[in-house]
Write a protein that binds this DNA or RNA. Structure first.
Length: 418
RNA sequence: GGGCAGGUGGCGGAGUAGUCAAUCGCACCAGACUGUAAAUCUGGCGGCCACUGGCCUUCGGGGGUGCGAAUCCCUCCCUGCCCA
């Protein structure tokens, strides 16, 4: 048992070392000042200990081991894309990149919600979530290059013994952990803080120490956790590390933000949906969107003055990054077709119905276009229902159902009877 | 262990016996307009009934008082805060 553990430890160290050597011999560090400038500024919220310090290191051509952690608590979304995009810039500069899949930390659940404790995930759910991560991440990072590795924190965290835990915990005080903004908010509203989530930053810090990283990259909301890593690194290894936080994708005016919703466009989202969802963004998000999500020059984006066109450009650019030029163009065409030209979508979901005649309300419920008859009635009275392009006004109407019939509810829901 | 405050629709949060299917905000849906599935404005937002009205089930669970309860009483469950 112990032998086995030793062996694994050895193997792990060997792999790390091997990886480092490989990178050392095959990759050169790029010190192009324009690229460095971009990496240091675009979408960057803050750099610890200072921008200056990091810039000096980068210009000196020092090879850095940089990591970001992603907890598989759900699907990857555009918010992850921002951080990964930043990582890509450093990858292109030739630094050594680690994407840490936080399979252990995901089971705790980083307490992001103001008021609620996140439901703990089972190991199974975590594995399920992480399933396609690598594939999605490969759309942003270059997996063909040898300076990118994927690691899992279960590997080392599960080996911690209670005595080790206590050792780690002893480097932090309750007051320090309590400083975290979301804990403060919870306290303010009288919410509870579970002990396990309280410990979250310690585990994340341990990741940084174990991998012996030089720099951590993460969203602005991860500042606290990453700084915990910086602290632990200093205490245990006496090493100064960099922390770079990226801006969050939010409306600069701060008003009327759909909260986290906006970031929640999944990277796996169907391209047409992705395009449409970006078009749904408020105008205030256009500039941040370009800065954070689009890998094209900001100047190019600023040339477009009409907000609608700018947003369309943004939507197309982002879809292109994940699905390629062709698909992006098709998504744009489809969007224009439905919402600019008011035509039917090229593809309409089909449904078979046994009945030949139905009251319009039953018809809507039967086809799942309305959740209840009351709702269906409301829709009809509000003129939200069209059959073969004709607005329906009479909720008592009996519909003769024919194949090929096209039902439309609102602007977006279409159904064809087959 | 002691003291206190609570549990209401997807969420937040009013209401403390009749006018409560329950103010309001968010989210959501529809309409108008436009530059789009944006912004703004308007309307809707438990369910059922061939419906300008009527019925049914909801306010943590169970029981009770009363003509009448989300609102009062009892009991159980759950949660938070404070003191030790």
């Amino acid at each position: 048992m112990i032998k086995n553990e030793h062996k694994q430890n050895f193997l792990r160290k060997f792999r790390l070392l091997y990886g480092k050597l490989l990178v050392f011999y095959t990759m050169k560090i790029n010190t192009d000042s324009k690229l460095i400038e971009e990496a240091l500024t675009r979408g960057v919220e803050k750099i610890y200990p200072s921008r200056q310090a990091l810039e000096t290191a980068l210009r000196a051509g020092k090879k850095l081991l940089i990591y970001t952690g992603i907890d598989p608590t759900g699907k990857l979304h555009l918010g992850h894309g921002v951080v990964l995009g930043k990582l890509r810039q450093f990858q292109d500069l030739g630094h050594e990149i680690v994407v840490l899949i936080g399979d252990f930390t995901a089971t705790i659940g980083d307490p992001t919600g103001k008021s609620e404790t996140r439901k703990p995930l089972t190991r199974r759910q975590v594995l399920e979530n992480a399933k396609n991560y690598k594939k999605q991440i490969s759309k942003i990072l270059d997996v063909k290059k040898s300076n990118l590795r994927f690691l899992h924190n279960e590997e080392w965290t599960n080996k911690l013994k209670p005595i080790d835990m206590l050792g780690l915990a002893s480097h932090f005080t309750v007051a320090q952990l309590l400083e975290r903004d979301m804990f403060q908010e919870r306290i303010k509203i009288g919410g509870d803080i579970r002990l396990h989530e309280f410990l979250y930053p310690i585990f994340q810090a341990y990741d940084a120490v174990t991998m012996d990283v030089d720099m951590q990259i993460g969203g602005n909301d991860q500042t606290f956790n990453m700084l915990a890593g910086r602290t632990l690194m200093k205490k245990l290894k006496g090493k100064e590390t960099f922390v770079l936080t990226t801006k969050l994708l939010t409306d600069p005016t701060g008003k009327k933000m759909g909260k986290t919703e906006l970031n929640m466009i999944n990277l796996e989202e169907n391209p047409k949906e992705m395009y449409g969802k970006i078009m749904k963004w408020p105008d205030g998000l256009i500039v941040p969107g370009f800065e954070l999500c689009a890998r094209i020059s900001i100047d190019e984006a600023k040339k477009i003055t009409n907000p609608r066109d700018a947003k369309a450009k943004l939507a197309k650019t982002i879809v292109k990054q994940y699905y390629g030029e062709e698909t992006a163009r098709a998504a744009e065409r489809e969007f224009n077709r439905i919402f600019k030209e008011n035509k039917l979508p090229t593809k309409i979901a089909e449904l078979k119905i046994e009945e030949r005649k139905l009251n319009i309300l039953d018809f809507l419920v039967k086809t799942n276009l309305a959740p209840s008859k009351s709702e269906a009635k409301r829709l009809v009275l509000q003129k939200g229902v069209k059959i073969n392009g004709v607005t329906q006004k009479d909720w008592k109407k009996i519909i003769e159902i024919k194949t090929g019939m096209i039902l439309q509810v609102g602007k977006r829901k279409f159904l064809k009877i087959s």
